[in-house]
Every structure is written in structure tokens, then in C-alpha cells.
Amino acid sequence: MTGKPLISAPAEAALKVLVIDKDPIRRAILDAGLREAGLANVVLLGETTGLLQHVYRIDPDVILIDLENPSRDVLEQMFQVSRVVRRPIAMFVDQSDRETTQSAIEAGVSAYIVDGLKKERIKGILELSILRFNAVARLQDELDRAKTALEERKTIDRAKGILMQVKGLTEDQAYALLRKTAMNEKRKIAEVAQAVITASELLK
């Protein structure tokens, strides 16, 4: 997948897209992306209680749903020929382009389309969703790493304080001791620091 997918043709811009995602941030990011690409008809849904009723009421051409959503199975019911289904829905699976389907599953998004809708017409929408989902995952990952780094920093500071108090070291010496021990034991400094804190609590 290269470049920014463009959805320029007026026929595509008129498609009604329903986004089902419990994550409000990702929902907003996907919404912004779809609108930037020229799709004016985007409906967002975070709540999945009574999902089928919502889908019938909204009557979308395309449905995007995150894979962490247990209600994905509810949509499978719409493939069945049944009186309650107004417009049969099919999963977007392009046999000729396995790569897109695979990228979508890996990114954590899945697409459903009204049966009969030409698959090429929604490919741009799906590719855009994949890019946005991956971008959110990267952001989440960075946020998690930043949080972990902050936690580790706090742990190391506490351990340094303990070593300074108990062994009468300066801050630099306390840090050097933690680092040296970590290297000798092939562990992370934060792990050694945690061990110091645990030991000191046990000895209280």
C-alpha cells in the first residue's frame, strides 16, 4: 500500500459509511480520515447494544468494525437470508487481492458491504481505514512505552533514594551501583531497582 488513498469519484463520496468502534479516539481519527477523503456520509457508533436495529436504521452501504469488538459476530447474521434483513450484507473479501484482506485483519479492522456493491468502490475506504488503524496502534504503542519509561524512572529514583540513605552514597554513586548490578546480572536497571525496593520493604 503506497500513498494516500483517494476517494475522489462522486459515486464513492456518496456512500454511507458506518464506523463501529468502542475506542472513541480511533473512531474520531477514522471519521476525520474518511471526511478528509471526501466522504460526507459517515455515521459513528460506539455502543453495540441492539446493534442490528442500529444497522437497519442507519442502513449503511459500508460497515467498518474493529476486530476487538465481540459484536462482530452479530454482523455475521446479516449474511443469512432472513426476513429481518432489508439489504443483505456481505463481508469485504476480495479474492483477487488477498493482501488487502490480510492487512485489514492484521491492522484489526474488518469491512462489510451491501451485497452487490462493487468491491473496487470501497477499496480506497478500506485502505484508508487500515492506515488509520495502524497509525492509532503506533500511537498507542508509543504512549504505552512512554508510560512504562515514566514508571521505571520513578522506581529507579526510589531505589536510588534507598541506597543513598542505607549505604550513604551520593545520587550518582547509587545510580552507578544499580547500573553495574544490572549489567552483571544481565537484567534491566528498573528490575534491579524494583528488587532493591522489595528487599527494603521486607527488611522494614
Binding site: P70, S71, D73, L75, E76
Partner: peptide, 12 residues
């Protein structure tokens, strides 16, 4: 979280 996920991930 869903049978659809299990099926799709097994398929690909």
C-alpha cells in the same frame, strides 16, 4: 473475542 475473528485469522 468473536468466532468471525477466529475463522478469519485461521483462514489467512
Amino acid at each position: 473475542v468473536s468466532w468471525s475473528n477466529v475463522r478469519d485469522k485461521l483462514n489467512i
